[in-house]
Amino acid sequence: MAYIIENANILKDNQLQKRSLLIKENKIASVRTDVIQYKWMKMNAEPYIMTPTFVLLNNRIPYKGTFQEIKKYMTEEFLLKGCTTLLTCANVSYEREIPEKVREIKTALIGSPVDFIIGVKIPIKKLTQSFIRICKRERIPAIFVEINNTEELEKIPWGWIRDALFPFNSPLIPVVSSPAKKEAENYLSKWKMMMIKEKIPCLFDELAENEPLTAVVLNKIGLYPQKACLMHGAEVSYNLYLKAREIKNVDEVSLFHYHGDRLVVTIHKGKVIRSGVEVLYRPGNGEYVKVKTPSFFTI
């Protein structure tokens, strides 16, 4: 059934943009600045601030816990925070482990109430052409690379790695093991220089867990504009926050961290999963998201 969301205050680039959205078959069919003149059912979203639902990186899900433990964790860490998609990764030491480890996580998340994508994490010294080819065959959208020292970066045949990545081009994402801030900064600086020099699809910085992933990051791993987006053709997944003067000029990350008490509605693919303080926990409502092509959409 088609309907219209009128007077939506969409938060984008730290500003509220007044828009009207035409919804058809759980997809955003149109986003307009003017009033959509149709006789379909209308919903007035004027009292709220609308954002896309969030995508979070999380590697601490208690896969082997009881149903109640998993439900509590998923509710508190995702549903109550307006997150409907998670990124997690399988820790692998050898390339032959990739299919099995990814399959284990898929099985563990079969009852997930939120959508999920799965990357892999490997020590940089294990990064080889054949490893990349298996990731490409398995459609792995994100490869986390553990860096322990700068010497390891010099030993990798980056030209071959670049060739092996093409055309799927899963981004390489650094994970720095050093607790010392200055040493970690040195590793990341060296990583950035190497990636630019070798023209490798990558992220220059680490990804923080339980922090909304930006549109740039989501595009790199192939989720944007499929997820965390309110534009033509996107799925109907959004959050509604009660409007207040003090949150007119904040970004989505600040809204996520400091105004969670104002989150009153979360919609996931057209279904209500949060209304007020009530969370509708639907086991198995989440799906494994198959990424077609990382960095396909130009931002």
Rank of each mutant, 00 (worst) to 15 (best):
I49K: 10
A45E: 09
G119S: 05
K64F: 10
K72P: 02
T85Q: 07
G82H: 14
L56A: 10
V120H: 06
T75I: 12
P113Y: 09
P123L: 04
V102Q: 00
A29I: 11
I105N: 00
V102T: 10
E77W: 14
Q37I: 05
S30V: 07
K106V: 08
P62S: 09
N91I: 03
Y38P: 00
M41H: 13
Y63H: 08
V120P: 06
K81H: 14
R96W: 04
K125G: 02
I70N: 03
I36F: 10
M50L: 15
N59K: 13
E95C: 03
N44D: 15
G65P: 04
V114E: 05
K42D: 01
I124H: 02
S30N: 09
F116L: 09
K42A: 03
Q68A: 12
R96H: 11
A108Y: 11
E69Q: 14
V92D: 00
R103T: 13
L127D: 02
F116A: 08
C89Y: 15
E104N: 09
T88K: 10
I122W: 00
T33S: 12
L109N: 08
I70A: 00
T88M: 06
V102E: 00
T88P: 12
K71D: 13
P123V: 14
N58S: 14
K101E: 07
M43E: 15
K72G: 02
M41S: 13
Y94C: 01
P123Y: 04
K101A: 04
I105P: 06
I124T: 11
F67E: 09
K39M: 03
T51Q: 08
L127T: 06
T88E: 01
I105D: 00
E76F: 09
T75K: 08
P62R: 10
V102N: 00
I98Y: 07
A108W: 10
I28N: 11
T85L: 10
M41V: 15
I98L: 00
V31T: 13
Y38E: 11
P62Y: 07
T88C: 12
I36A: 07
E69M: 02
Y73G: 06
